[in-house]
């Protein structure tokens, strides 16, 4: 009975989330829709980061760079190889998955801070590498699909026609990112509920115990990084689309990796609803801070203060807080069923 209720609760929650995502654009201006679409990209990358940090306990400071891998895959395939931008999204995920796998290899030997340094190195190296291999990446100029592949950039002209419907581009991008985000979060949810999720959690909670119960730790760590890379890659790919079909090395400096970690923890590790809140936090709080005062440095002070305050007041993150709010309700449901 409990199980049925729990699944019903999950379905109801998912339905509510889908409904919310569907109707939201009605209240959003065009510019706001674009911002929400960006948040959608962060949402996807944070789900990936959460698989690594929240479920296997491995800190990654390199997810911004994994986003970059996805972003450049999309940009290069669309600009130079004649693919339509939308079709490159899964490919970007796969390429970043390979990169995530490679990044996860040192995780076999390193843990904790040493792993953080490895991922940090990857994040710091990425912009420099992108500039270095300018033949492929366009160097510090980056790649502008709007100029180079306008016909293959879906919606670049302001509207998208889809099965008889006409959508404003930013609404389309909003639906695209959050649609993919919801599907992928559903996939992550199924993933962490199953065998794989148990193995991930076992690695996080105790490596020694996990190993002695026959779980191949290094395999699961690397796997977590690979899957996580797929998510970051898809997020990065979409990020090109929502950034006016433009990408350059300065899009993915170390700050992006740092922001993603902030988003994941502020959102509340381990909870999928928290991930969405974390994504909205890193998208909107800086903008909000910039509106508060235009003095140099002031927005940064406000943003930092917001981070510190959330962590002090809600140690479980925004998602943990949400859970606490809804707890009385779920507890009532459970008691009735008993």
């Amino acid at each position: 009975m409990n199980r049925v209720l729990r699944i019903a609760g999950g379905v109801a929650f998912a339905a509510a989330a889908v409904a919310l995502v569907l109707v939201l654009p009605h209240w959003l201006s065009d510019a706001k829709a674009a911002e929400f679409a960006r948040a959608g990209c962060f949402f996807i990358a944070i789900i990936g980061l959460n698989l690594v940090t929240g479920y296997t306990g491995q800190i990654s400071l390199g997810h911004g760079a994994l986003m970059a891998v996805g972003a450049y895959t999309t940009a290069i395939l669309t600009a130079d190889h004649g693919l339509r931008d939308l079709w490159t999204i899964p490919l970007a995920g796969l390429v970043a998955m390979a990169a995530g796998f490679a990044l996860g290899l040192p995780a076999r030997r390193l843990s904790g801070l040493y792993l953080a340094l490895a991922t940090f190195a990857f994040a710091v190296a990425m912009p420099a590498l992108l500039k270095r291999f300018s033949g492929l990446t366009g160097g510090s100029q980056g790649i502008n699909l709007f100029d180079e592949a306008l016909s293959r950039s879906t919606g670049a002209l302001g509207h998208v026609h889809l099965a008889g419907w006409t959508l404003a581009t930013n609404d389309f991008l909003y639906y695209l990112t959050w649609g993919i985000g919801l599907v992928l979060s559903g996939a992550a949810w199924l993933l962490v509920r199953g065998r794989l999720g148990r193995a991930f959690r076992a690695v996080r909670d105790s490596e020694v115990a996990a190993a002695s119960s026959g779980i191949n730790i290094s395999f699961y760590k690397t796997l977590a990084f690979a899957i996580s890379g797929f998510y970051a890659g898809v997020g990065g790919s979409l990020f090109v689309l929502v950034s006016n079909w433009f990408v350059s090395p300065s899009t993915f400096t170390f700050d992006k990796s740092l922001l993603l970690v902030v988003g994941a923890v502020v959102g509340g590790l381990g909870s999928l609803a928290g991930m969405a809140l974390g994504a909205l936090f890193i998208q909107f709080v800086p903008t909000w801070a910039a509106n508060l005062s235009s003095a140099p440095g002031a927005p940064s002070v406000f943003f930092g203060t917001a981070i510190v305050l959330v962590m002090i007041l809600l140690p479980g993150g925004l998602g943990g807080f949400l859970l606490k709010l809804t707890e009385p309700l779920t507890r009532r449901l459970y008691t009735r069923s008993e």
Partner: peptide
């Protein structure tokens, strides 16, 4: 994360 917040501040 608090120290990251401090970084920005």
């Amino acid at each position: 994360i608090v120290t990251i917040g401090l970084f920005f501040i």
